[in-house]
Amino acid sequence: MEETMKAKVTVSPRRGVRDPQGRAVLGSLHALGFPEVVDVRVGRFIELIIEPKGEGGPDEVEARRRQEQRLDEMCRRLLANTLIEDYRFETEP
């Protein structure tokens, strides 16, 4: 419980939002002879090392729920611009 935890956040352009980087990479892959690629979206990968706060108490499920809530808040408030980007995250011990 007291060890650090790793959170992996993936941010990608929302569907329907133009992604000129993705288009450029797609064009380049085609030029290299990979015509099977039909679409590319270029996003961002962020790794967070998180120190669990001791206050969680013995209820591990509740502590985890809180941590995910806080991660979600980090994504919404800074890591992603939800107008143009989607995000998802996973945690590992």
């Binding site: 939002v17 133009r18 000129p20 980087q21 450029a24 611009n81 107008l83 143009i84």
Partner: peptide
């Protein structure tokens, strides 16, 4: 825009 004081977002230029 990022502060939410104006609507919208500024993305990468069309031609990169």
């Amino acid at each position: 825009c990022e502060a939410g004081l104006l609507p919208g977002a500024l993305m990468r230029n069309r031609g990169l």
